[in-house]
Each structure stands twice: as structure tokens, then as C-alpha cells.
Write a protein that binds this DNA or RNA. Structure first.
Lengths: 372, 372
DNA sequence: TTGTAGGCGTTATCAA
DNA sequence: TTGATAACGCCTACAA
């Protein structure tokens, strides 16, 4: 009863804890205790409070709660672009894990631009998120932002890419191994001249995939030919340009470091008039369930996207609750899926060994022991 | 200087407006005025404040601001599933528009389940979002939730689907027209027996696509055969089952009401051993740029996904700012993209009229006047 | 078990 | 132009 004057605008206000307390003829403490199910409240008062809550449609204001508790139960997730088909499943994994723990997700698209990324990070800090999932754009954070981040003590978990200026936890995949296996498979199938469309070498996983490629050539006794290596940027267009450059040189096969560049490369092949797998073998990263019925089926290194997101949130939550102390770097394993784009089927057919239907064979092959 | 006791745990606290005020030897009012660039502050004080802000790495706590301003500059967006390839671009359109206006996006996946959807709506209200974008799950909201929503006065813009219990704004597409054009095209190409895998008829756009199908048959002088119509639920599996049922009946063509069901149908075709477009023509909804290099290329009704999201946020913001008064229902136009899955190429080839390369022809056709 | 009052970090009103 | 101070809605230590 301390409000001296009536509200001016009769702004439509949701009822608050005081309204409920008044209605139930109890104190705000009691209401709070009932709503948060802590402390012991006598059945009588509890019933009165519950009735009032019901009657007034009371819902606690999470802003106010966050302010006093210093916890928003919100995490921010910064990805390059949710439209890039790699991210939806990852984000979904993160959202599911977050939701189960009572957290919500603030989604940010950085477009791989440092400036945008930094602005989002600042915004997230200002919104007082409890933690951040970050798929880092190339380059380092500015010193001031890094400082701000460190000082805020808000935990950050890196996704897919590590960065020297991010000294927190990270969830990545063993991309070197994935690339190694894919390229080894291309070699095993009989391809000798294998070209590479790599990701940006300035990015940790771009570099890792390149290393895997190189080591596989070596292990297969093939020559690394710089002329057959093009550095792309993970976007469609760079794959297209790489295709226009590489395919006319007629390599036996191409290994492309991600899916979008594969799309670009195949567009180039289309224009040039080359077909996969008849004219060149192809293996790449990332598989998508909705591709399974289109041709050619791609031989790919599949990454556990959902798990990446879910695991990252898991780690973040442990960090938030103070359980986790030591820095952890989780490396998830990729899985080679052999299908027809690599030319596997053709070779088999040539040698008259094939009798299975096209859709069964690749899966059988992908479970072959040598791929572990 | 009113804190009576030292902080207990030496909890790491970000500096607040009082810290800055003390440091700059001014009042909090001055700091606030400088930070928000309103009011007139003398250059001297402004400089002092700015220096202090810099020094202390001060960033306003948006929770506190939101509490007093009753505005969080956050919107919630509830989609069925961000993994459904329809949504990323829509969400991106929304996020871009939101970001430009200084808003952030809270992402929620309802999985098309009413219960999950309602829980998210409540959470969003509790978090005091300024507005909500909602792709409604089938069925109506419970009376209590609807009531809560109405009472909260938080504007909701429906996406793609309208619902009788949502009396707010909506952004939808003219799905009836889209379906009509696609099916008319199938008929024009020469297909007589056209099957339909529809979306859920309990959902507004599922119904609309069904109506378009029906009207197109009528306009083309074809019979509507209930045996050739299967109601699906927009998920892959229902398309698969529909395919297993429909394809053995050897329709000339199939119209599938969305992309995921098309994937399922093609999987069924694969298993049965039927090929598209040789054995049956196919047209469906939703096109994706990363499909362009795979076969068969789909004849699709393309929806302006990005615009849907962007427009919805636009409307939401106008509603939030109180500019928009009347309810608005925006209906965006789809666009038919003719490619090879409908059998267009085959017919042409049969009649020896085709001389263009496969990848050029469809685009030329899609610009044909009769498709406007 | 229940109530009171102070504080969380802002903005905004009203004096000075 | 500036400063003091009351909201905003919640939680919680401390008192009763």
C-alpha cells in the first residue's frame, strides 16, 4: 500500500508476486516458496497461494528473477549461418539438451564475419546469458572483446573450430581422420590422381582435413600435386570455381572438404559436361538424410552433428554449475559412408563382382571392417 | 557507500552503473544519459563518463533495463523443427530483420506437439519477449493458454499456418494457387492419372494444397480419384508409406505436398524399382539450392521462405511499436519451377522438340508466360 | 512456518 | 545540466 498515486496510463500489467500475495492474504515470501517449491509452506497457505496464482494467471517474471539470481537460464549460440545445412541439426542437438535442463537458446548468425560475431558476443554478454556456444569466424577476437569475455566469466564452448584466442572448452570432430579415410578409400577404389578442394586453411578444421588428405596420399603411395589442390572457403561458389579449374584437368577423383563446395563443384561438372561417378570419383564431408534418394549418392564423411551440439551444451552446463574445472576438448569420431559417387560401384561392376542392388551395396560397404 | 558489509564470496561481478558513476564522480543519471545518448550532458562530464566506461568495461545489464522498460528487445520464434529444411531460411529471414532492428531471437522447436508448443509459449511469456512468431502445431491451444496469451498482450504472428484460435496477424503463402499451378502443369505435360500425397488436412496449408490439387484436376478436365489421394503428415515416413501404396497403382504422376514427403516417396520408388521421371512424373513443394545438381531435378512450387520470416518480423515490430492496428494477413506468392521430375523433358524429347541441354531447358520453361 | 526489508541494475521523476 | 530517489518484480537473510 505504498503507491502514492494511481498508475497513469493504465498500462496493461501482468500480475506480480505482490498481487498474488495480497490476493492470497500471505506475504511474498510464501508465494515465492510455493512457486519455487522450496521451503515448507503449510497446506492451507499453499492452497490459497495456488488458487491465487491460478486466478490471477500469475507467471514469475524471469527477467526479475534473472536479475537477482544472476542467472538467466539462457545460452547464446553463434553459428556462421543457420541456412548452411550443416548447422540445423547441430543447433537442434544443442536446443534439445538445453531445453531438457531448463535453458533456452538465443540464436545468432555471424556469416563468418568477425565484426558481426563480436557484436553478437557483446550483446549476449549484455543480455547476461549463462554461457555461449561459438562456431568461430576466421581470425582472432579483438583484444578488448577477448578481455571483456574473459572478465565476464561467461563460459564459452567452441564448436568445430578451435582458435588460439579461445582458451575454453571445445567440441570438435576428428576431421583429419575423416579426410584420411575418405581419401584412402578413393585410392583403394583405384583412383590415382586425386584432387582436393580444401576448406580455408586458416581455420582449424580446414587445415585438419587438408592434413588428412595429404597423409592419405602418402599412405597410399600417391603423389601430392599442388596443382590439384584448391583452397576454398566452404561456400558454394568457391566449390564452383574450384570445379571449373580442376575438372578440366581430368583428375580421377576429387575430395571436397564440405558439402556446400560439393554442390558448387557438381554445378561446374554439369556445365563442363562431366558426370559423377562416370567421369570422376567424388568424396566429401557431411551427409544429409534428405539426399538419400537423389543421384549421385555421395560418398561422405559423416559428422555427428546432433551430438556435437548436445555435447557442447552438456559441457557448458557443467561449466556453469561449476562442476567442470579442467579444460576439456572433446573430439567426436566421423564415419565414412561409402556410396556411389566415389566410383566404388563402377569399379565393382567393371570387375563383375557386383550383384547387390545399388541401394544396399554402399551401406554394406560402409560397415566393412577396414573402415572400422 | 551504503553497503554495510563486504561481499561474502567475492563473486565476480561485472561493474554496474553505480561503479561507473563513482569512478567518474557523477550521478547514475549522468551515466545513463551518456550511455543512452539522451539528455544533454556537458562535454566534461561526458568525457569522464566515457573514460570510466572504457576503464571498467561497463556494459549495461539488459535484464535490468528490460525490467524497468518492460521491453526485452527479444522475440521468440517457435517452429516445428529447425532440422526440417523448410525452416532454416525462414528463421534466417526473421533473424536478419530482427537483428537490424536491435532484436534477438529465441529459438524453440515444438516438434509439432501441442504440449511442447504450449510450454514454450509460456516460457516465452515468462521471459517477457516482446513478440512471438509461431508456426502452429495442429490443434487448438488450451483455453487457459490462449487466455494467458491474450492477457499478456504479447503480439503473435502466425507463420504459414493460420488457426481459428489465433486472432492475430499472419504471414502465409498462396498454397492453393501454388498447388493449382503445379498440378495444372502436370496435366498440361500430358499426365492424366495424377496422384496426391497431401499434407495434414487439419492444417490450413495442408487443406489449401489439397484444394489447389482438386481445382487443377477440374480445370484440366480430369477426374478426382479418392483412391489416388493419401493424407500424409509432412514427414518423410508418411511420404514413404504413401509411395508404397500409390506407386504400384502406376499413376502417370504424383503431386506431393511438401519436400520431406517427396524424399519418402522417392525412397519408396527406389525400393519398388520405379524411376522418376521415366516411370512417373513428380511435382512437389519447396525447392532448395543445394539440390540443383542432383538428379532428378524436381519440379517444385517454391515458397519465399526468407521473405516469410522477414515479413513476419516486420509486422511483429510494427505491432510492438503500436503502429499497426488492424489485423493483417499477408499472403505471399509461390513460384513454379519447372525442371525434369515432372516429365516435361521426356515429353519434349519424345516429340523431338527438345534441343536445349537439360540444365537450361527447365529454367527457360519456368519463365514461360503461361506460368506467369 | 511466515513476514519484513534490502538489494539486483536500470530508467525516470522531480528538485536543485 | 545534474543529483537523489523511487519504481520495476523477484529472492532471501534475518527477524518474529
Amino acid at each position: 500500500m505504498k503507491s502514492k498515486r494511481p498508475r497513469k496510463k493504465r498500462l496493461h500489467k501482468a500480475s506480480n508476486i505482490y498481487d498474488v500475495a495480497r490476493h492470497a492474504r500471505v506475504s511474498v515470501f510464501t508465494v515465492s516458496a510455493v512457486v519455487n517449491k522450496n521451503g515448507n509452506v503449510s497446506p492451507t497457505l499453499r492452497r490459497r497461494v495456488e488458487a491465487a496464482v491460478q486466478k490471477l494467471n500469475y507467471r514469475p517474471n524471469l527477467l526479475a528473477r534473472g536479475l537477482v539470481m544472476r542467472q538467466t537460464h539462457t545460452i547464446g549460440i553463434v553459428v556462421r549461418d543457420i541456412v548452411n545445412p550443416f548447422f540445423p541439426l547441430l543447433v537442434r542437438g544443442a536446443e534439445d539438451a538445453a531445453q531438457k535442463a531448463g535453458y533456452s537458446v538465443l540464436l545468432c548468425n555471424s556469416d563468418d564475419q568477425r565484426e558481426k560475431e563480436e557484436q553478437y558476443l557483446e550483446l549476449l554478454l549484455s543480455k547476461r546469458v549463462d554461457g555461449i556456444l561459438l562456431n568461430k569466424a576466421p581470425g582472432n577476437l579483438s583484444a578488448s572483446r577477448r578481455n571483456l569475455l574473459a572478465e565476464s566469466r561467461v563460459p564459452v564452448v567452441s564448436l568445430m573450430r578451435t582458435s588460439p584466442d579461445l582458451k575454453g572448452d571445445a567440441v570438435i570432430t576428428d576431421d583429419e581422420k575423416g579426410a584420411f579415410e575418405a581419401v584412402s578409400h578413393l585410392a583403394r577404389v583405384g583412383h590415382r590422381q586425386i584432387a582436393l578442394v580444401s576448406g580455408p586453411l586458416s581455420v582449424s578444421n580446414g587445415k585438419a582435413r587438408w592434413r588428412g588428405f595429404r597423409k592419405a596420399l602418402q599412405a597410399s603411395g600417391l603423389q601430392y600435386e599442388p596443382d590439384l589442390v584448391i583452397e576454398g572457403d566452404y561456400h558454394i561458389d568457391s566449390g564452383y570455381r574450384a570445379g571449373l579449374f580442376l575438372l578440366p584437368r581430368r583428375p580421377d577423383a576429387v575430395f571436397v572438404a564440405n558439402y556446400l563446395m560439393t554442390v558448387g563443384l557438381m554445378k561446374a561438372a554439369d556445365e563442363i559436361g562431366l558426370r559423377c561417378p562416370e567421369d570422376f570419383g567424388l568424396a566429401s564431408f557431411d551427409d544429409y538424410p534428405w539426399l538419400s534418394c537423389f543421384r549421385p549418392r555421395l560418398t561422405t564423411v559423416e559428422l555427428p552433428k546432433y551430438e556435437i551440439g548436445a555435447t557442447a551444451v552438456q559441457i557448458l552446463l557443467e561449466r556453469i554449475s561449476g562442476k567442470r574445472i579442467r579444460r576439456s576438448l572433446v573430439k567426436l569420431m566421423p564415419e565414412l559412408h561409402v556410396r556411389e559417387s566415389c566410383g566404388f560401384m563402377l569399379r565393382k561392376r567393371d570387375s563383375k563382382e557386383d550383384s547387390l542392388t545399388p541401394q544396399e551395396k554402399p551401406y554394406a560397404a560402409s560397415a566393412a571392417p577396414e573402415l572400422q
